[in-house]
Design a protein around this nucleic acid. Structure first.
Length: 280
DNA sequence: CAGATGCCCTGGGCGC
DNA sequence: TGCGCCCAGGGCATCT
């Protein structure tokens, strides 16, 4: 579910709420969510009593840096939520898999009905960017790694891949999923199936600019929440950017630019929305 | 290498 | 009401 703007919204809220606080206890209710460990007691032991120094984001992953240099990594998958509970007595919602109790009161709860999300504690990352080895495969982050358009254009031309698939390829660029790839491509006037090595420099520049602007705009509006409300921020609030979607989930509705009908197709099994007139 | 498919899951919506 | 489909912000393995 959550893509870069939703994860960044959550990261900023966590920055305000939990930086400098200590993890008092960790309760694992659903072991499917805590992966990559031999036993559930191992991550618990590495978290309890540790201080959260800062919260970073790489693509769709949240990285909690601990004072031990260990890193708590959380990915929300399709239906994961991180919710702030004011006290320990708030009723525990269904599909709550992990409860992190903080020392000055309050909890952080990880919910995930579909259990595609995951959480694990990584060893200290010794590399320059302090990226856990498990995430070494991820490509650049469109917002925190400022890649200039010239370099972006070179990356595009080194591949021969349909644009939407490339935008969604986390090894190419990290953080863009099904909603924002469609919106970025509409904003840049490019079709989902254009091959990446067919773009003119001007088109590559447009795509680069649209990607950054659209993601920033979506963050300003706290991301997108769809009809099923799978995305909520840590306070349980929905985002507002869904009202700004210009093609995603708008099949048959008029294109905001030319008023012709928005088309829907499939690409790699994912619904894809575009305007056949405005996107070339 | 590029692209398509199926799987991991639960839940909501819709047609019958 | 109820049942059986189809669909869903992700990611990965495995085919062609």
């Amino acid at each position: 579910m959550p893509e870069l703007p939703e994860v960044e919204t959550i990261r900023r809220e966590l920055d305000k709420e939990i930086i400098g606080r200590k993890i008092k206890s960790v309760e694992i209710l659903g072991s499917r969510s805590v992966r990559r460990h031999e036993s559930p007691s191992e991550p618990v032991a590495r978290l309890q009593g540790k201080k959260i120094v800062q919260v970073r984001r790489l693509g769709k992953y949240l990285l909690f840096d601990l004072d031990t240099k260990d890193i708590l990594v959380i990915h929300l998958g399709m239906s994961g939520q991180l919710l702030r509970a004011k006290g320990t007595k708030e009723p525990v919602a269904e599909h709550t898999h992990v409860i992190i109790t903080l020392s000055q009161g309050g909890q952080l709860r990880f919910l995930d009905p579909r259990t595609f999300g995951e959480m694990f504690v990584s060893d200290p990352a010794e590399n320059a960017r302090r990226i856990p080895t498990q995430l070494a495969h991820l490509g650049f982050d469109p917002l925190s790694d400022q890649i200039g358009w010239i370099r972006f254009a070179a990356m595009l031309s080194s591949r021969k891949t349909q644009l939407k698939a490339l935008l969604m390829d986390q090894e190419f660029v990290a953080g863009i999923g099904n909603i924002y790839s469609d919106e970025i491509l509409f904003a840049s006037g490019l079709r989902y199936d254009r091959l990446s090595n067919s773009l003119s420099p001007q088109e590559a520049r447009r795509l680069h600019r649209s990607m950054i602007e659209l993601l920033n705009d979506a963050i300003q509006m706290h991301g997108s929440s769809l009809a099923d409300d799978a995305y909520k921020d840590i306070y349980g609030e929905s985002g507002e950017f869904q009202g700004q979607h210009r093609v995603y989930n708008r099949e048959g509705l008029p294109c905001p630019r030319c008023k012709r009908k928005i088309m829907r197709t499939k690409l790699a099994g994912r619904s894809t929305f575009y305007c056949a007139h405005c996107q070339l």
